[in-house]
Design a protein around this nucleic acid. Structure first.
Lengths: 343, 343
DNA sequence: ATGAAAGCGCTAACAG
DNA sequence: CTGTTAGCGCTTTCAT
């Protein structure tokens, strides 16, 4: 099960040539065909495989990129991870997943841990972006790309999306299908997405553009189904709503369950929208109308940004944005699902 | 953003002591308090952080463990990943996620890639276990732990579960609540879980122990919701069933959707069970009765096995098993959800 | 085109 | 307790 591996020196000896020639032959740079042939044969016989650590030490590159998130259980991050992996793998980069969620370590601590140089770059999607984190990122010894808030003013590469505008799309859609009493279940306000989404909801439900009659907000403790269920109960208990906008799909599912508890049908009595357009939302019953924030796309873009950074020298920081778009499904169907009920 | 890091030599110079003393002082092994103080101060001033690559090369340890799965999008693997991470992180190990799913690379190729030595061990949960894979694992230069089939005869550490017995539990439960016409939606038969679950279903529905009247199987192309939907349509179109056992939660959700399309209520007209006891099953409507295979527990155990291997010398291969257990929820509620319908 | 040798950053013998 | 030194496996000058 555990056998020691052949080194380049052994290949060199076997081939009867110098170490340098062996290395060159294996990389196909400036070696005669005969030499290449000879070395390749020796390498094959010994089952040689270059050692990543030795290589890294010499080249000062680890060929690894880290992806750090608060909670890898959130489907949004899984989507990002998949996308990141798809972009980086073809370039010979491995992806190391780091989670700040269940451990006590703050995201800033995690960024600081990059100083041990086990990775060539980092993609991080922080829930909260405070000064400590910004400082840690700016002092990081390797390129860092942030998925979330734009940090242009600090010279940090970032991939953002306009979730506030996305919330506006959700509200507009609900008004369009005739809903007038709109509730909003948001996550914690001290998080980047929580703050942005609240801004979006407030903007969409105030001023002349808002053709509805009533708007109110209830805050969940977290961006999870359980928290959404509790917040949904509180919000719906007050009565009088015909639609609820949730700050993400998990919260929306919680709200729908809360509605069920109270005997409210979705979308008949209550239309519900989510955000993130996750797989779970697509397959939920009723399937969830949701604002896509292009998770996979953001992951892809972030991966390309790090790739450029680790490859080239210093360029100005770049900001990329992905536009939100609404995906309408059953949870806001204009006509309450009468046929579905019929048997 | 990118600043070069201080090395041990620089710390030594700064402290005015030798390289060796510096290393020792920083590790707290055999250095005088005065020396430790001096070196620590110098290290702090320079913001020194030990280089992982140099350390790895010297110690012949990378402090990394890889986790390889077919599809990181599957919630089961995410649960395992979380558990693995929780066990390994406190021991200073990082987790590298490798996916074989969307790329063409076979699991065997992936195992062979370990030969570059970028990791101290591997946890792999393969969908199919053929001779090529077994050979690759046996020849791997680092310890490999398999989550899935027991591979004791090959001297490979493994964590398994008895999903066949789990299927038996699901069938027994359905019979108990009075169902007699049982359908089974399985995934591909040429996969390890597919084969085991088929065996379990066949055993549970044949012989005198089976008090039902009818049993039939329909195969999905994959262990996904989409495949479950299609297989569910085929199975239910034939009619006459009052219960369906699905080989995992995702397939079960697909089946429930197919039932909805045909106007069948769950659990009223059709009881449905899943397997894996995933989060998505818990929050689905109706919530899913499911056979837990202890995903998190299996991840934890696998992590402990690699940890033991990378720490110690060669021990005999160990096999660990996690027992399945049924979790009953709404999708098989004995009394069809009459109250729920009432408003 | 090939070989000799330096050195990436670190730890661990070995001497003193 | 401290310093000197070797060397992990590799790439890359620098000579030849």
């Amino acid at each position: 099960m555990t056998s020691s591996r052949a080194t380049l020196i052994q290949v060199a000896e076997r081939a009867g040539v110098s170490l340098a020639s062996t290395s060159r032959a294996l990389h196909g740079t400036g070696a005669s065909p005969a030499m290449v042939e000879r070395v390749r044969a020796a390498a094959a016989e010994l089952g040689y495989s270059p050692d990543a650590t030795g290589r890294s030490l010499r080249m000062k590159r680890t060929f690894q990129v880290a992806f750090a998130v608060a909670d890898i259980g959130n489907p949004v991050y899984v989507e990002m991870l998949t996308a990141i992996h798809e972009v980086l793998a073809p370039h010979g980069y491995r992806v190391v997943v780091m989670s700040t969620g269940h451990t006590v370590a703050s995201t800033a601590d995690l960024v600081r841990s990059l100083s041990s140089g086990f990775v060539d770059g980092l993609i991080v999607s922080p829930l909260r972006t405070d000064d400590e984190l910004v400082t840690a990122i700016m002092q990081a010894p390797v390129p860092v790309v942030v998925i979330g808030r734009s940090l242009e003013q600090h010279g940090i590469d970032s991939v953002s999306t306009d979730s506030a505008a996305g919330l506006g799309q959700a509200v507009a859609h609900l008004l369009e299908i005739g809903r007038r009493q709109i509730g909003f279940v948001n996550g914690p306000l001290d998080t980047t997405p929580g703050a942005a989404r609240q801004r979006g909801f407030d903007a969409a439900t105030s001023g002349p553009a808002f053709t509805g009659e009533h708007a109110e907000t209830e805050r969940a403790d977290d961006f999870t189904v359980a928290a959404g269920l509790e917040a949904g109960r509180r919000l719906l208990a007050r009565g009088g709503l015909d639609a609820v906008v949730a700050a993400n799909d998990l919260l929306a599912i919680g709200v729908i369950r809360a509605a069920g508890e109270l005997g409210l049908s979705v979308p008949g009595d209550l239309a519900v929208t989510g955000m993130d357009d996750t797989e779970i939302g697509k397959v939920f019953q009723p399937s969830l109308t949701s604002v896509s924030l292009g998770s996979a796309e953001r992951g892809r873009l972030a991966a390309r940004l790090v790739l450029d950074r680790v490859g080239d020298g210093v360029e100005p920081a770049r900001q990329v944005a992905v536009g939100p778009h609404l995906v309408v499904r059953e949870s806001t169907a204009a006509a309450p699902s009468k046929e579905k009920r019929a048997r």
